[in-house]
Write a protein that binds this DNA or RNA. Structure first.
Length: 653
DNA sequence: CATCAAAACGCCCTCTGCTGGGATGAC
DNA sequence: AGTCATCCCAGCAGAGGGCGTTTTGATG
């Protein structure tokens, strides 16, 4: 059994999915219908938060499959989910190194053969972490031990190795160790050296843990289901094989041992010939009982009767607590448990979960083990149940089966559509009130994001940008800073002027001092503000400057500012109706940024340059050519009428 | 062999929560 | 104009509930 490394899926899903394994499955196991691969032995390991586990672990071979642990697996619990595999007698004997098969009957025996030291790691240590004990946990609440579908190999420290009702400790420190596990017994028997006490009805599993290829970090775990084989069969050079026994030969009898009947098509076995014969009919396809209403055929008259009841509406089992009625008594019992008695006999051993049905507990267990038996054949996603895989397949097909009856928007999931209808088409849209502030948010999940971002305590202090106050919560900081917003904290000592920003005050002070630090290198004209110098230079000295012209859509006359043009246009009754490029821009600006338009309007009132000459002022960015020079006063008409805030705001823009 | 009850299988549903992209507003 | 934070929204997956149907074990 050679190990090969598989790539770890690059696609990530939700948190738990980080635990997933890459599984190399025999091709014949795949069912391509519906895009669903019928893999039943894909397992994921470990705990979700075990992100410290390295990828240094080698692949683990389980049965026919290779499990490549992802970084998150191999957690503290080191749980490996395994399943028994069927081996031919030859294979079984090979697995045992040629030793004869032990005798078996009902119940369960687990034989552990260890050719070398076990190589199971926890805590991501790739080497030097040999754990001599492996605990095999059998979920007897979920499965009868005879039907073990899931075994958990749990790596323990030697000191922690314990034996409990459902836990069997296997010492792998010796070359060969045989462990007998008997259903229903409190104690665990250790049988060393391959000798067994035969008990009628026992079932055997061969569990082998062997080192992989030399120098590689791998361990090969194999569980072989030997229950169907009598020693004589196995030693008989494989004349009959497990699962392939001729039905006519199925009644197998050993002196003093109960007969076992095995299906030659599937793994079904039964000690009763009647059950065996009835089971074989499931493979024959024989359905002699036909519904006269829909022509559907059934194997038994009971099935047909139940089916006809669905046509006639005959539901003899009526619930005493509600109006529901059922075809079978079992349905009624289950219904009553779900709806009325809330009796949940199937309890999870790892958490408080309990369920009405065993299948639900089995499904729930997968949330602990991470097992994902249902593999998407188009991507690396694997699901814990068939429905999720089916739902997932819509992401590949693009199917959106749910349509909003109001706006006809389509959705992949019904729940998404329902939320859409509530949020978009309902009058009383629910709002989620933040418990810490006045914010109301439409979705609970977004409220959670709000709480996380705004109301989470941060260890590092966040300082107010305007004063010395500091806060540990972002919301408090933002609220505090808003108190500074309209505060004109800077007051002029020469006049009544006040402003919000210091830079505004710096410029204003120049109106008192007469300082004009910005001069034009071409004409020596001086300005108090750099922006005014830029305007001046572009207007009078930059020959490449092409001003934006807002044309009157009526007469085509050009203006440097849209509001001047608009004022003109209201009175203009010219015939030219064409909308120029600049006209479009004006329209856009008006629609998208009325505040900016308003500001420009104010500026125009005091600092307009006549645009009829075809040159309008424009405020360039910092890349514009400017000339700095201490200069005497000048250009009063441009500068004096503009406020500091106005110009600085223009510079900001 | 028929029948019943329990178990198992299968399907669909709802509720929940996270995620990421686009829109929007504040700075 | 650019950046950033926030909000809105649809997409998508996890978990579990509920019930119809089929299979199986047990029994008369």
């Amino acid at each position: 059994m050679a190990a090969s490394k598989n790539p770890v899926p690059s696609e990530q899903f939700t948190k738990i999915k980080e635990l997933e394994l890459t599984l190399e499955t025999a091709p014949e196991k795949q069912d391509k219908e519906d895009g669903v691969c019928g893999v039943t032995e894909c397992s994921s390991l470990g705990k979700p938060d075990a992100q410290h586990i390295h990828r240094a672990q080698g692949p683990i071979l389980v049965g026919n499959h290779e499990l490549v642990p992802s970084p998150a697996e191999g957690s503290e619990n080191g749980i490996l989910a395994l399943q028994p595999v069927q081996l031919t007698p030859e294979e079984a004997q090979l697995q045992r190194g040629g030793r004869p098969a032990p005798q078996s009957h009902e119940g369960v025996q687990v034989l552990v053969h260890q050719a070398h030291n076990s190589l199971l790691w926890v805590d991501g240590e790739p080497q030097q972490s040999l754990y001599p004990y492996v605990t095999i946990s059998l979920q007897e609440e979920v499965y009868s031990v005879q039907e073990v579908e899931l075994m958990e190999f749990q790596v323990l420290d030697e000191s922690r190795a314990e034996t409990s009702e459902n836990t069997f400790v296997v010492n792998l420190s010796e070359n060969t160790r045989l462990i007998k596990l008997k259903k229903g017994e409190e104690e665990t028997q250790y049988l060393v050296g391959g000798e067994f006490v035969r008990t009628p009805g026992e079932q055997l599993f061969l569990v082998e843990a062997t080192a992989g290829e030399e120098g590689s970090n791998e361990v090969v775990l194999t569980i072989s289901n030997l229950s169907v084989e009598e020693p004589e069969d196995i030693s008989a050079s494989g004349q009959s094989q497990p699962g392939k026994a001729d039905a006519t030969k199925s009644p197998q009898k050993t002196e003093g041992v109960k007969r076992t009947f095995q299906c030659d098509v599937c793994t079904f076995t039964s000690s009763r010939i009647s059950s065996f014969n009835r089971h074989m009919k499931t493979h024959s396809g024989e359905k002699p009982y036909v519904c006269h209403l829909c022509l559907k055929a059934f194997r038994t008259v009971t099935l047909l009767r139940n089916h006809i009841n669905t046509h006639t509406g005959t539901r003899p089992y009526k619930c005493g607590d509600c109006d529901m009625a059922f075809v079978t008594s079992g349905e009624l019992v289950r219904h009553r448990r779900y709806r009325h008695t809330h009796e949940k006999p199937f309890k999870c051993s790892m958490c408080k979960y309990a369920s009405v049905e065993a299948s639900k507990l089995k499904r729930h267990i997968r949330s602990h083990t991470g097992e994902r038996p249902f593999q998407c054949c188009l991507c690396s996603y694997a699901s814990k149940d068939t429905y999720k895989l089916k739902r997932h397949m819509r992401t590949h097909s693009g199917e959106k089966p749910y349509e909003c009856h109001i706006c006809h928007a389509r959705f992949t999931q019904r729940g998404t559509m329902k939320i859409h209808i509530v949020q978009k088409h309902s009058e009383n849209v629910p709002k989620y009130q933040c418990p810490h502030c006045a914010t109301t948010i439409a979705r609970k999940s977004d409220l959670r994001v709000h709480l996380r971002n705004q109301h989470t305590y941060k260890a590092a202090e966040m300082k107010c940008r305007y004063c010395s106050a500091s806060f540990h919560e972002r919301y408090s900081l933002v609220q505090h800073q808003k108190t500074h917003k309209n505060e004109k904290r800077f007051k002029c000592e020469h006049c009544g002027y006040a402003c919000k920003q210091e830079r505004h005050m710096t410029v204003h002070i120049r109106t008192h001092t007469g300082e004009k630090p910005f001069s034009c290198l071409t004409c020596n004209k001086c300005f108090r503000q750099k922006q005014l110098l830029n305007v001046h230079f572009r207007k009078y000295h930059d020959t490449s400057f092409i001003p934006t012209v807002y044309e009157c859509p009526t007469c085509g006359r050009g203006f440097s500012r849209w509001n001047n043009m608009q004022r003109h246009s209201e009175k203009c009754d010219g015939e030219d109706k064409k909308l120029t490029h600049s006209g479009k821009r004006m329209k856009k600006k008006k629609q998208t940024n009325p505040q900016e338009a308003e500001m420009e309007k104010d500026a125009t009132a005091t600092a307009t340059v006549d645009a009829t000459a075809g040159r309008g002022e424009q405020f360039p960015g910092e890349t514009g050519l400017v000339h700095f020079q201490e200069a005497p006063a000048g250009d009063q008409d441009l500068e004096e009428n503009m406020t500091c805030e106005m110009i600085l705001d223009m510079m900001d823009k």
